[in-house]
Design a protein around this nucleic acid. Structure first.
Length: 422
DNA sequence: TCTGGGGTCCTAGGACCC
DNA sequence: TCTGGGGTCCTAGGACCC
């Protein structure tokens, strides 16, 4: 098993931190009475979004319906999720991590990577001691446990943190890699999903070690680039860097909702319009404008069709964009076929300030309609933030809001906006 | 759990241009 | 006018992640 690099120690190291059953753990930390008991989060959605380890031991899994849990495991404590609380814990958890290792990539609400290169000498601690310290600090401060993996690359660090949990600490050095890959199904490697796993199997690759042991030439011939990168990472060669910037800019913003399959074009357009409104609302909240919009529809067989529309100027205003989407919809809608989802993606996002600079550069004054739109939507946003997101919608979107009417809601049409009064 | 929503990145094929 | 090769850019659709 040739591992050409990094077998003599740890010239570089990446740490992966994974909070265990995060949402449920936070609830248990906040309310000590829940400790040691099966706890499930997700009451408001009707399906399980997180399960405490006590619940997992009983056999409760993510995605189960709440009703099923109540019936089969009546002693389970079922809670609504509280994202603000989880975000706060997440923030504090990452702060603790950053205090010890400054180069941190916040990967998701409950996961992070850290670059440990050079830290041993600086902290006078071994990698193992660094990992232990992080775990202890998080446990004593926040009352939750995390699993930590340390290895040469992100992919290996992921495997390490996953190796023992909850509350695990696993180091994988270069010369130990094959021990950890030997019995690991290839489908459990980060970046190998169902499709690539199936391709692996067809080629006689079953374990992560099978993949790592294949020749470079073989990998390049049979797999797309991402798998080649994973192959390198499995062999201890860093491809994916730790990116320590907090993501504050979106590259795209999408909104889509599923519904019972239908061919009712009015309804599909309403969905499209409603999704556009939601996406634009989010873009405006972030001060972003889109230069392009993609619309997509999924039929009953989950086949997707999409169409990209370029905007003549950056916008986050449904009034301007909607007519174009209607035209686009005509192009991808097929008569006699039922669809289960339509969605929009705002792409090529730029910030409003960039837009302003561009206007300045080209000595173009924002037209009065531009300003009107801006102030109109500013007012709309204000109302929707205060009274609920479907208080003010475009008339076209109305069939969607009718689908789930607000209590005591009635509606009133004004030229292109509809007002729901409650 | 045959399929929830919101993201990112990759790729194959066509258009267009020397 | 036709043929050929090669680069770049764009678009639609996949695949994967949490």
């Amino acid at each position: 098993m040739p591992y050409p690099l990094n077998i003599y120690g740890f010239p570089q190291a990446i740490l992966h931190l994974d909070a265990n059953a995060f949402f449920a753990s936070v609830e248990q930390a906040v309310n000590p009475e829940l400790k040691g008991k099966p706890v499930v989060v997700g009451k408001e959605r009707g399906i399980v979004t997180a399960v405490s380890y006590e619940g997992k031991a009983l056999g409760i899994k993510r995605g189960m319906t709440i009703v099923e849990v109540q019936k089969k495991f009546p002693k389970t404590i079922i809670l609504e999720s509280d994202y603000e609380r989880y975000s706060l814990f997440s923030l504090k958890m990452f702060d603790i991590l950053k205090k010890i290792c400054p180069v941190v990539e916040e990967y998701s609400i409950d996961e992070a990577f850290a670059d440990l290169q050079g830290l041993r000498g600086y902290l006078h601690l071994s990698y193992e001691e660094i990992g232990s310290k992080i775990k202890e600090d998080i446990k004593s401060t926040l009352g939750i446990t995390v699993s930590i993996g340390i290895s040469l690359t992100k992919v290996l660090a992921k495997i390490a943190s996953n190796h023992r949990k909850p509350d695990g600490l696993t180091l994988i050095s270069g010369r130990e890699i094959h021990h950890y890959l030997k019995d690991l199904p290839v489908s459990e490697v980060w970046g190998i999903g169902p499709q690539r796993a199936a391709l692996c199997e067809k080629l006689g690759i079953y374990s992560a070690l099978d993949l790592a042991s294949a020749s470079e030439e073989f990998i390049k011939r049979h797999f797309p680039k991402p798998v080649y990168e994973i192959w390198l990472e499995l062999r201890g060669i860093q491809v994916y860097p730790v990116v320590p910037f907090t993501k504050d800019k979106y590259k795209s913003i999408s909104k889509a909702l599923s519904f019972h399959p239908t061919q009712d074009i009015e309804f599909l357009l309403a969905q499209l319009s409603f999704n556009l409104e939601r996406a634009c609302f989010k873009a405006r909240q972030y001060g972003l404008l889109a230069k392009g919009v993609i619309i997509f529809i999924k039929d009953e067989e989950f086949q997707t069709q999409s169409l990209e529309i370029k905007l003549s100027h950056p916008s986050a205003y449904p009034k301007e964009i909607l007519p174009l989407l209607k035209e686009g919809m005509d192009l991808i809608y097929r008569e006699g076929i039922k669809f289960r989802q339509v969605g929009v993606i705002l792409t090529d996002l730029i910030s409003e300030s960039e837009r302003a600079t561009q206007l300045h550069l080209f000595r173009v004054n924002p037209s009065s309609t531009d300003k009107d739109l801006k102030s109109l939507y500013r007012a709309v946003d204000k109302i929707n933030i205060k009274y609920g997101r479907t208080t003010l919608v475009h008339g076209v979107s109305l069939p969607v809001t009718k689908e789930k009417p607000l209590k005591k809601g009635s509606s009133l049409r004004i030229p292109f906006l509809s007002v729901r009064l409650s």
